[in-house]
Each structure stands twice: as C-alpha cells, then as structure tokens.
Amino acid sequence: MSDKPDKFIDDDGLRLDGRRFDEIRPMKIEIGVLSRADGSCYLEWGKNKILAAVYGPRTLHPRRKQIPDAALIRYRYNMASFSVEERVRPGPSRRSVEISKVSAEAFEPVVLTKYYPNTVIDVFTEVLQADAGTRTAAINAASLALADAGIPMQCLVSACAVGKVDGKLVLDLNKEEDNFGDADLPVAMTQDGEVTLLQMDGNLTPDELKESLEMLKKGCTEIFEIQKKALYTKFGKDPVLDVDDIDDEDDEGLAQIQVELDDSEGEDVELDEDYLDVDEELEEAVEVIEVEEDPDKKGISNLSDEKEDDSDEQ
C-alpha cells in the first residue's frame, strides 16, 4: 500500500487517469437485467461494477417492523468477497452496515412510501468490482432499479463524491485518490439539488465544502442526465413510444370485465342461480359427458364423483 503517487495532478492539470479535476468517470447502465426481480440495474462506473435489485413492495416480516402508514425501505449494500484485490470477509461488516443505513435514508425522502402501508421495499446492491465511490455508484444503480420496479418516487437520486488531493478539489475520486487523498465527500442529491446523503472523511475548510457542493451539483446533474437517458432508451433508441390504444383502456377496463362477466353468465346461468347444489349436479353431468369423450379422464372424474357423494351424505 506504499505505492502513493508523487503527484495526483500533473502540470497540464490532468489527473492520474487523464481526467480533468471536474470530470466524472465514464458510466454504463443497463436496466432490467434480472428476470426474477421486480426492478434491476447493472451499472459500470469507471472500474466499479454494481448490480442492484429491487423486490417489492411486499409483506414485511417480522410484523413488528411494519409501519402502519408507510412502506419500509430495506437497503443492503454488500461487497462481493472478490470485489477488491485483498479478499474481503463475506457478510455484513461495520462499514457495509453503515453504508446500508445511510443509503436507505438517502431514498426515504424521495420514495412515496405512503402508498404501500405495512410493506417493505427491498433494495439489494452488490458491489462486484470496487474502485472507489462504490456507495455513490450503488445509489445511482438503486435509483434506477426502483424506477424500473415501478415504485412511485418524487424524483431520481444521483450520487457522486468530491475529494481533495494535493490541496485541490477533484470530482469523482478514483482508487488512488481515495486511498491517499486528504478528504472524501460522498453526496446524494435529487435533480433539484436537495441533498439526501452527505458524509465526509478527512478535512475540508468551510469554503472548500461550499465549492465542493457546487462541483457536486454539476457532477450529479451530469449523472442524472445519464440515468435519464438509460430510462428513456430502455425500449429502443427513441424516447417516444409508438403505442396504440392505451387511452380509454383503463377507464373502460372495468366496464369491459363487467361485460365479460355478463357474457359468461349467459353461458351458465343455471350454475349461478341456485348456487352450489345445482352447480355440482351440473358438474356431474358435464363430467359424464367428458368420460364418454375422453376415456383417459375416467379415473379422475370417478374419484371426484365419489367425493361429492360423500359430502352429500354428510
């Protein structure tokens, strides 16, 4: 760990990986990658690789944790044991528990939890490969996974970090800058610039903090644009879908189903008229016909006939 670079910023003002001081790493996003999750997102940000999955809203157990007028957001940040050079012990650590807690709180103000009382929205973020700024990357991925799951939110959350190296503020730290820098300030904010998460490691002067927040606003807006583009282009390049007859459906949907019911009533009016007794008699009649048609079904229908006889006797 003693391979600290002599200089973080060269004479041209470029950083170790060739970025300018206010430039973020390239980001790649894929939405809806997991078939069994309600919403999911895979995100690559520089050398970070994050997989986020959202399940729910679903019933919350244990029941004592249920909130009577809101959904609980259960957020899990986890680093895969192979995500860094030195193997990390699998399972929750002090660090990951803390990150999980603050990340859940980063989403609480924006997710409209009041629509799903007594439930839980589970967010799982797995760091598959880490290279500094994984909590912000995980928040960016989780934000998209929540949108993909169809969960109502006030807006998306974008997160980014600012750090200090060689006495200069830089946006979106890479690993060297994170390990040997003087400060690290991860922040999550909404598109309006409302901060939902702010942590700090190291020292910054009040002026530096103010300047950092300005840089972060710019960085988060940039990330928000990338997130927005990813959502717009999930179904193809065009942000406009060529969809027909969506309108009216929702209003007429109920009416239509009602009509359907009326239709089916026409076919088996007798079934519903005197409820179950008649119903079962008719069923038997139907089954007799089936036996004649299909000898394979004989065994099954005989069995059910016997069953019905039993219940009549009782």
């Binding site: 109502p152 939110m153 807006c155 998306l156 879908l241 969809v243 027909d244």
Partner: peptide
C-alpha cells in the same frame, strides 16, 4: 399514436387541476 416516456420527477403539467394517477403535485 406516439407516447412519451416519462421518468419520476419529470414536469408534465403546470396546472395542478390536471393531476391524474401516477403523478404528484
């Protein structure tokens, strides 16, 4: 018919009387 994709937090109307489902004011 063309339909626009919208994301959470996108401004869709400046008249709060228009708010339907899937929206907030």
């Amino acid at each position: 018919m063309d339909r626009k994709i919208v994301i959470p937090g996108e401004l869709i109307s400046e008249n709060e009387q228009n708010a339907g489902y899937g929206t907030y004011v």
